[in-house]
Write a protein that binds this DNA or RNA. Structure first.
Lengths: 386, 386
DNA sequence: CTGTTAGCGCTTTCAT
DNA sequence: ATGAAAGCGCTAACAG
């Protein structure tokens, strides 16, 4: 798109969508002296007033009377550089007073590394994504990487390879792919670019980082089993979501090994989805006594349907959520949940992606800790046989 | 940080935090022929196999036998370029078959525009941020910009100027600042860099985009007034949050103009906060009959406290949330809310920032639409005078 | 101990 | 109708 076209479009747009309120025009800023070093951590006052262009390597070279390469070496702490103590100090000084910031663009162009990742997330609404996001953002920040978040539009979920262009255009060094669907048909397009699947297993193996869903289901089954429950239902998202798939398998396995019955119900991961599926079960009669619910959105629907039908929790059925959220403690009946290591998952994904970008041959990562049951009021002893 | 140091750190880290499961090693990808043009929209098959470096302008120039500058002009659709139809087609062809992608880094370096924004968001948990985020991401994507999200750590909220470095290092063209606090002490550091305050008024004026909080409060007050309520309380976040400040002012004004009483209660924007403040009111006796609650997290606490105290909703008190979320429809008593134009706010913020980056002298933007009351069951006629 | 040189991939003015 | 050349800000191999 040409700049001109873009300018026009944004202008209309603002006019269409919003009402505008005119306030006083901009006043120019005032000046002041020194500043600090480099990187995200810098604080304090600014270097110089106005919209003066940023200081470059050559500016500080000129100021000190040395060559830019010398400045570069000093600022990058080149180990095999020997330099007169005095020049070194003058360089550092000039950098500081000019408020020098390395131009990340130029660096990236030269080093062939952008220092950024793209994080593709299916839909931002579920709170699990925000915790995951936070873990990833934080670790990336610690390591000096930037993360750009891309939201996958729910409807027409693009194949992961659709994000390859971000790397090809040198906007990112690699891709964090949290697209939920387990399209096991190998997507060749994404292969050519460093990437890691987050919270789902990828088709390629060796580059996915996932949580211990089986362990989570185990926690749930153990908990209700210890209270005498013998029949379990797992209400979860669509079967082609990888985490769902793994929880389902685990539920079957855990229940079988204890001789418990395990029903599985798939529904959209929304309030509506949870509501509908529960209504249907209610209508069909004979409810399992222990419900595991895959997403918090579904949980609201499940709870509403149970309430609506006059099925007391935990009197008649016990309920456990696989998404933990603080609000669960404040519901009509506080809901027991399994707290998953989401932030750790995000951090581990960043670490894994960095290894990949650096060319390491990596193995899949399984994040198990910290994971624990958060006992609240929604689980009770199994009701006597009906 | 040196690459070596970084590598080591990430390696430990992965080992510490996670358990690792080895899976089969990587298999090499297979090749295939043609591809498409440029930009985020590209689909289809990939250009060439393996990890071949991306095609550059010069590659296609060589292939066609012209100069890179010609190729550049063609690909950028330079209007004042005249070229033989045939060469043009050969260039386009070569670009396509090579799967050419412009290197965003080099472009940015040359044009002095990165095509990216940084969006600073206070804390990702509240669902309002995700809707806002989505609006911004989407508009930015439409306009060919990338957005990187930075989360503001709650505790030590940095001044907005702390993010200036992102622009100074040429990582972004401008800043979208959704930091909630209305530190009206002018932050000079941020001034030097294109920025827009989102969902809060900035100290400088002319560069903030906000929603019509007063209108939202008006919707609430009108609604309960029409049902006979005469006493209102607004339970909201800390007073130094800008949106809170505006809602408070509006509540006072609206109630005064109708001769209604307006109480204001500030509390942390958490479930706990809502719970505590409501408990305190309950203990003090004589409740207002209409509650407006500033955040959904607080809402859970408020509802819990009311339930706990045996104060029926809407029998004794009516409740309205200023955060809309689908889950509200599925609560024990479905909660009436005011739906705010959050996605539109995000989009408008992006538009405003683009104008700023392009040097326009902008006015503050007030996003009013679409905003509406979502009537559910938590509001009823005022209880008779006690 | 420090300067020179050669680019990274792209845009753009100025010459043909 | 197209090419040459300069240069964005930085790094790194190679000279002195």
């Amino acid at each position: 798109m040409s700049p001109a076209k873009r300018r026009m479009r944004t202008a209309d747009r603002a006019a269409q969508v919003t009402s505008t309120e005119v306030t006083e025009p901009e006043t120019p800023p005032a000046g002041a002296p020194p500043a600090k070093l480099t990187g995200p951590a810098a604080t304090g006052t600014r270097p110089a007033a106005g919209s003066r262009r940023a200081s470059r390597l050559v500016d500080i070279a000129d100021a000190v009377g040395v060559h830019v390469s010398t400045v570069s070496r000093v600022l990058n702490g080149d180990p095999r550089l020997s330099i007169r103590q005095e020049t070194l100090e003058r360089i550092l000084d000039a950098a500081r007073t000019q408020g020098y910031r390395p131009n990340a663009l130029a660096q990236a162009l030269k080093r062939d590394r952008t220092g950024a990742f793209a994080f593709v997330i299916p839909l931002l609404r579920n709170p699990i994504w925000v915790r995951l996001q936070r873990g990833a953002l934080q670790r990336a920040a610690e390591l000096g990487y930037a993360v750009m978040i891309m939201e996958e539009p729910t409807e027409a979920a693009k194949p992961p390879g659709a994000y390859r262009y971000l790397v090809e255009e040198s906007r990112a060094d690699g891709l964090l792919l949290a697209t939920a669907l387990r399209t096991n048909k190998d997507d060749p397009a994404v292969r050519e670019v460093p990437h890691v699947y987050v919270n789902r297993r990828g088709p390629e193996r060796g580059n996915d980082v996932v949580m211990d869903e089986a362990g989570a289901v185990g926690l749930f089954v153990d908990h209700v089993a210890s209270l005498g429950h013998r029949s379990v239902v797992l209400i979860d998202g669509p079967r082609d979501v990888d985490t769902v798939h793994r929880r389902v398998a685990a539920a079957r396995r855990h229940c079988a090994s204890r001789g418990m019955s395990a029903a599985i119900r798939h529904a959209p991961a929304t309030e509506e989805g949870g509501w509908d599926v529960t209504r249907r079960m209610l209508r069909a009669g004979k409810l399992p006594t222990a419900f595991g619910v895959g997403s918090i959105n579904q949980l609201f629907g499940v709870l509403a349907a149970l309430r609506d039908a006059g099925a007391p929790v935990p009197g008649e059925v016990s309920v456990v959520s696989f998404d933990e959220d603080e609000c669960l403690a404040f519901l009509e009946v506080p809901v027991t949940s399994v707290s998953m290591p989401l932030a750790e998952l995000g951090a581990a994904a960043v670490d894994a992606l960095i290894s990949r970008v650096e060319g390491a041959r990596t193995a899949g990562v399984l994040v198990r800790e910290p994971m624990f049951l958060v006992p609240r009021a929604s689980v009770g002893p199994a009701a006597g046989p009906r």
